[in-house]
Design a protein around this nucleic acid. Structure first.
Lengths: 136, 136
DNA sequence: TATATTTGTAACAAATTTGGTTACAAGGTG
DNA sequence: CACCTTGTAACCAAATTTGTTACAAATATA
């Protein structure tokens, strides 16, 4: 995957969870991730819209809306990827071909089971698990 | 995912499995997928290198190297994605930060479990399952 | 043998995605 | 009021994906 949104999102949430009494600015978090503060604010915005953190324009810092043990990696995944599917099916198979006619529905079903298997494991891991692994 | 390699690969293999006595050219398969023959040959090349089909320069057609019930979707996934990881971890977290120092190893472990869950389900489905779903 | 067909592959272009950056309005602090 | 922070738009460069043309090499066929 070309994309490190999930990774950066978990990094942000881990920082917030391990510094519950500090006001962590996007600049501070950017220094930990080693990226630009706007990248942090962009992903923080997704986490805010997903109900995972609270931030306010002008007010320094961000804080978690749930306890780390109640935030699953699936919650974070949904916040940053929304409705994106894991595997796309090619768009225009030929309906005049028996395979082409039915491949989309077939693969939609198949890929949905694969995506659900992935999501079950994401739901099985929490932000608290991540933090404990960090602290050890 | 932006990418329909897996989907097209399964389409190709489904065509070969359901037409075992025909010599399916890249042009024929391209008509079913509705794409360019070179796209078919490109993905056929990955399937050949993955040991799933046999093709030869100049000789029309391709054929399966295994029975459809012995080809899992994980075999096909590996043929087309090789060593690609499902979720990448951002590259340069700050080692001076306790979170930054350990986030990569932590997320590598976490994401590997998620990737394995996905792969287990891919291994659980075979090309034969796909074909049966098509035929019904 | 000569012609036609097919595969494999390189090369290129257009579209899309990602991450980084600048800029700036709006909100809040001291 | 001066300063800081967030949210967001706009833009760019790099990477990726898909479609395309071109062509050499291998094979089939007349």
């Amino acid at each position: 995957m070309v994309n490190s949104r999930l990774s950066v999102a978990i990094h942000i949430l881990s920082l917030l969870a391990t510094h519950p009494h500090d006001k962590l600015t996007s600049e501070f978090m950017a220094a930990s991730v080693q990226t630009n503060p706007v990248v942090i604010r962009r992903i923080s915005g997704m986490l805010r819209k997903g109900g995972l953190i609270k931030t306010q324009p002008g007010i320094s810092g961000a804080f978690l809306m749930k306890k780390p043990e109640n935030v699953t990696l699936l919650d974070i995944y949904h916040a940053v990827f929304q409705e994106e599917v894991l595997f796309t099916v090619h768009a225009n198979p030929n309906p005049a071909c028996p395979v082409g006619k039915q491949i989309q529905q077939t693969l939609d079903d198949s890929f949905e089971r694969v995506e659900n298997a992935m999501k079950n494991e994401l739901a099985n891991q929490t932000l608290q698990d991540v933090i404990e692994h960090l602290i050890i």
